[in-house]
């Protein structure tokens, strides 16, 4: 059997028809799959842009989330048209401008995942890997985490996620939650300048996070969607304009506290997340990385990931 075509290889019309058909389009993210139907013009084009390397799947099977992007009701179908986001037939959010369907879809998938996937510890972290060795980059919004993750993907790392670090508390492995990387404001130009291979979608102006453009995950990352990776390195990145590279080792207990702080469901999971993060903090080398120059930061993380053994300072908890 031939592998399914990539979305980028298809006409937008084919994707649009699949989105309207009863079975919809399946999008595999790694940790979960989403089945989506859409009845909004332009959405197929937007998907094709930022999910270009993803396989075109319309077969039957089990899916974790069932989403619909539908047209607004009443006059809002025509006048300043809106779109609506539905999960299992329920609309958890207010309608939004139809032209912004893609960023709302992306945000909606994140919301569903964060609400429901409490079988995993969900870290607010970018995760990248070389082979099966992964680095977890946890940070609060605005610290340059997505920019660094995007830059690393374009420099040969496999991207697992830029938003959700998905940690399996049973095995201690990391799973992909591979989505288009939402780049904000200045980051968009930084990434465009970094690599000719950066496949960026349109710029959405004035979203709740300012200007947003999505970087499509590359084929290397998409091909390894299903593979788990082993965390060996934790980095807390911090971008500061014009500063040199600074690397500060962190003690496991500091790392634990910072990981817990950067977890979406730490308190919800209670003992499950406590144990999982204690193991993670104990087995990985942990650094705080302050940087002003993206290529240098990427080189530094590469060197750390290549150099360190099986979590050099491993400690049992």
């Amino acid at each position: 059997m031939n592998p399914p075509p990539r979305l980028a290889a298809l006409e937008a019309k084919t994707i649009s028809n699949a989105l309207k058909a009863p079975g919809g389009l399946r999008i595999p993210y790694g940790a979960c799959t989403v089945r989506v139907r859409a009845f909004v013009d332009g959405f197929a084009d937007a998907l094709r842009n930022v999910y270009g390397a993803f396989p075109f799947l319309t077969d039957d099977g089990f899916d974790d989330f069932h989403l619909v992007i539908d047209r607004g009701r009443g006059a809002r179908r025509w006048v300043r048209p809106t779109a609506r986001f539905l999960i299992d037939g329920v609309e958890p959010f207010e309608p939004f401008p139809r032209s912004n369907a893609l960023p709302y879809f992306e945000w909606g998938v994140n919301w569903c995942f964060a609400q429901r996937f409490n079988q995993y510890v969900l870290l607010h972290a970018g995760v990248l890997a070389l082979g099966d060795r992964a680095v977890v980059m946890a940070a609060t919004p605005g610290s340059g985490k997505s920019t660094l993750a995007a830059g690393m993907m374009l420099s040969g790392f496999r991207l697992l996620s830029d938003e959700f670090g998905v940690l399996d508390p049973v095995s201690g492995d990391l799973l992909s939650m591979l989505k288009p990387v939402a780049l904000k404001n200045e980051s968009i130009e930084v990434i465009r300048a970094l690599s000719d291979e950066a496949a960026l979608g349109p710029i959405y102006r004035g979203t709740r996070k300012g200007d947003v453009s999505h970087l499509a995950p590359n084929a290397n990352s998409v091909e390894q969607l299903g593979a788990r990776a082993r965390p060996v390195l934790v980095v807390f990145p911090r971008y500061r304009r014009g500063v040199g590279l600074e690397l500060k080792p962190q003690l496991p207990e500091e790392a634990f506290a910072r990981l817990a702080f950067n977890s979406f469901n730490y308190s919800l999971l209670g003992p499950v997340s406590f144990d999982a993060l204690a193991v993670l903090a104990g087995r990985c080398q942990v650094y705080e990385l302050t940087y002003g120059d993206l290529p240098k930061a990427i080189g530094c993380v590469r060197a750390l990931l290549n150099s360190n053994g099986e979590g050099g300072g491993a400690r049992e908890y």
Binding site: F62, N118, Q119, L269
Partner: peptide, 21 residues
């Protein structure tokens, strides 16, 4: 129970433990 289904069940067990707490 298939693994992927078990994931959803585990998530709901974890969420319920939290609510009961």
């Amino acid at each position: 129970i298939p693994d992927r289904v078990w994931g959803h069940l585990t998530a709901s067990i974890n969420y319920s433990s939290h609510r009961l707490q």
